[in-house]
């Protein structure tokens, strides 16, 4: 690497211009303008969902589990997307579903990252038996199919929302652990970590101040992907009846409850499924763009 783009002069004070002073907002806006169309689309979708989740009660005249008309009403003036198997407004349920499913998925993913991330960095930084214990434990957890294990645990501990969050978070944190440990291993061998150790810094400082900032990009990218998977898992569990419980609106159970309509050529039950798919695609577009930006890959010819 004898030709890295740098100019070195003996008395180096004036070798480089001072870095341009810029706010984080301005930088973010500039990056956003340069983003590819797919990423812009993804961001639009995510912001749309967040908006709906936040303002669901304002956007619809009906309550979340309010029975407002006859069952299986077709699309029309009063009920834009018809009603479901109990006569609740489909559109209202769809909007509230965004709130419930996204909210729970977000909290679950955050928890999974907290558990997996901390354990992963600690395993890499401490090595030795700590690493062995954590890694083998994770191996065992990963050896059991996640969905079936989740079903098992949910039947044991009951299907309340907190248990749902904790169980999915623990199961998902195994993947986060693997990633965090792998990327941390590349960082903990760096001289600056050794310098920190020799300075006498504690493990907390090394984990949070030295290692974490350097593994953020892959973790953030993984966060997007994990969020999608958690989301799908919750939807799948709800579809199977062990996820979010009625009468709380949820996209997975909405598909199940109204599945019979498909037999009559009505696409309404597919709308919640479509909503899940759209969000998944959107998040993935954004994650792709982010990975591309942070990994330093360039578009060559």
């Amino acid at each position: 690497m004898s030709d890295s783009v740098e100019t070195t002069v003996a008395q180096t004070a004036d070798a480089l211009p001072p870095p341009p002073k810029q706010g984080a907002m301005a930088t973010a806006w500039r990056e956003l303008k340069k983003a590819p169309l797919s990423a812009k689309f993804g961001l639009l979708v995510i912001f749309g969902y967040v908006f709906i989740a936040l303002f669901a009660p304002v956007l619809t005249p009906y309550g979340e589990s309010e029975i407002v008309g006859p069952e299986f009403e077709p699309w029309g003036e009063q009920f834009i997307l018809g009603t479901d198997n109990l006569g609740r407004d489909m559109l209202t349920r769809l909007l509230y579903g965004a709130r419930n499913t996204i909210g729970i998925a977000f909290v679950t993913t955050c928890l999974a990252f907290l558990i997996g991330g901390v354990a992963g960095i600690l395993a890499a930084a401490l090595a030795g038996w700590v690493d062995q214990v954590f890694s083998r434990l994770v191996d065992v957890l990963m050896a059991i199919p996640a969905l079936i294990f989740a079903l098992l645990l949910l039947t044991i501990f009951g299907t309340s929302i907190p248990t749902l969050i904790v169980i999915i978070a623990v199961l998902d944190s195994t993947r986060v652990f693997r990633l965090a440990r792998a990327v941390s291993l590349n960082v903990v061998v760096m001289d600056f970590v050794e310098a920190a150790r020799l300075r006498g810094e504690g493990i907390g400082w090394i984990t949070i101040r030295e290692v974490l900032p350097n593994i953020m990009p892959p973790l953030v990218a993984e966060f997007g992907l994990r969020f999608c998977f958690v989301f799908l898992t919750i939807a799948a569990l709800s579809f199977l009846g062990l996820g979010i419980q009625p009468p709380t609106a949820d996209w997975g159970s909405m598909v199940r409850d109204n599945a019979t309509l498909i037999t009559y050529g009505d696409v309404t039950p597919l709308l919640p499924a479509g909503a899940i798919a759209l969000l998944t695609v959107g998040v993935n577009f954004v994650v792709d763009w982010f990975l591309h930006k942070t990994s330093g890959l360039r578009d060559e010819q």
Binding site: E6, T7, T8, A10, T12, A13, A15, L16, P18, P19
Partner: peptide
């Protein structure tokens, strides 16, 4: 004044 708020990537090897 020039260097205190820089990141290492904004320095040359000797710096």
């Amino acid at each position: 004044d020039q260097f205190i708020d820089r990141l290492p990537s904004e320095l040359s090897g000797g710096q």
